[in-house]
């Protein structure tokens, strides 16, 4: 069985047949757009840009310094947009491997192709969720006559409740890399890691690993916690002690490749029959 056939199968059953998950994600994005619009109205702001909306979605939280009377302001929207993608992607590979996948591997004769096809599906799936989200944001911006630029408006730091107020917008130097590339790249890397971990433990446990990575990133500003790179407010273009986008790109790409290659090597000798 050719590699392209496996890819076609995964795109059909992993994306097209699971259209409802994309619909749910789209609905969440739409709700977030409405929330953004109401928030603008409550601050009497009429003009906004595409960048403002994306900033609202992926701003995350500024560095948290623990204080007894100040609990962390969990950035639920940022968390939800990332963890929902991981939730929808967590069981597809495992389900396939414990079902039809075993026959497909036997027919194709090459385990390598099956694993690489799953990696490609994972990447495409994350990309589809984010593209869908961006498409909705674009439609929302068109509908509201927003400016199509990545410029952040002056009052955006007031609208985001998770610590943006301490940084004056005039000093921000963020663009498409922080607003678009980093959230997609980081989510892909974590989703890929999650799929790799699913080879050793149950998908449920691998999802818990993803949750712990995202929650830890909220608490600790560190180059080693990947979630930091997906939060715009943790970027070194905003916070002086923030994380660099370049480091984030290198870290995410390395993690993606490491997950693909290690998964490939491990899967060559993996006992597929022992899975329930």
């Amino acid at each position: 069985m050719k590699y392209i056939k496996l890819v076609k199968f995964d795109l059909k059953y992993g994306i097209l047949k699971r259209w409802y998950t994309y619909l749910l994600y789209a609905l969440l994005t739409l709700f977030a757009c409405m929330d953004f619009s109401f928030r603008l109205k409550s601050f009497d702001i009429t003009n906004f840009s595409l960048g403002d909306c994306l900033f609202y979605f992926y701003s995350g939280i500024s560095e948290y310094i623990p204080k007894p009377d100040e609990p962390i302001q969990i950035p639920y929207l940022w968390l939800l947009l990332n963890l929902l993608v991981c939730y929808f992607n967590v069981h597809y590979m495992s389900d396939d491997l414990s079902g039809l996948g075993q026959y497909v591997i036997c027919r194709s004769g090459k385990r390598r192709n099956w694993w690489l096809s799953k990696c490609l599906w994972n990447f495409s799936s994350v990309l589809t969720y984010f593209l869908l989200s961006i498409l909705i944001v674009l439609s929302f911006c068109t509908f509201n006559n927003a400016e199509f630029s990545f410029e952040i408006s002056e009052n955006m730091n007031l609208i985001c409740p998770t610590g943006a107020q301490q940084y004056p917008v005039s000093q921000w130097n963020i663009g498409s890399i922080q607003l678009l590339l980093m959230p997609i790249l980081v989510c892909t890397a974590i989703s890929m890691l999650q799929m790799f971990v699913s080879l050793f433990v149950r998908p449920l446990v691998s999802y818990v690993v993803s949750i712990v990575i995202y929650f830890s990133s909220m608490y600790k500003l560190s180059d080693l916690l990947l979630g930091n790179y997906a939060m715009i407010l943790r970027s070194d273009e905003i916070a002086t002690n923030g994380v660099s986008a370049l480091n984030g790109i290198i870290f995410s790409v390395c993690l993606i490749f490491a997950s693909v290659i290690c998964g490939l090597l491990y899967f060559q000798h993996y006992n597929i029959l022992s899975r329930e």
Binding site: P66, I74, I211, Y219
Partner: peptide, 15 residues
């Protein structure tokens, strides 16, 4: 109300 551990405990309680 300061540690990551309490946040994880309460948020992961449903799982």
């Amino acid at each position: 109300r300061m540690s990551l551990a309490y946040t994880l405990f309460f948020n992961l309680m449903p799982i």
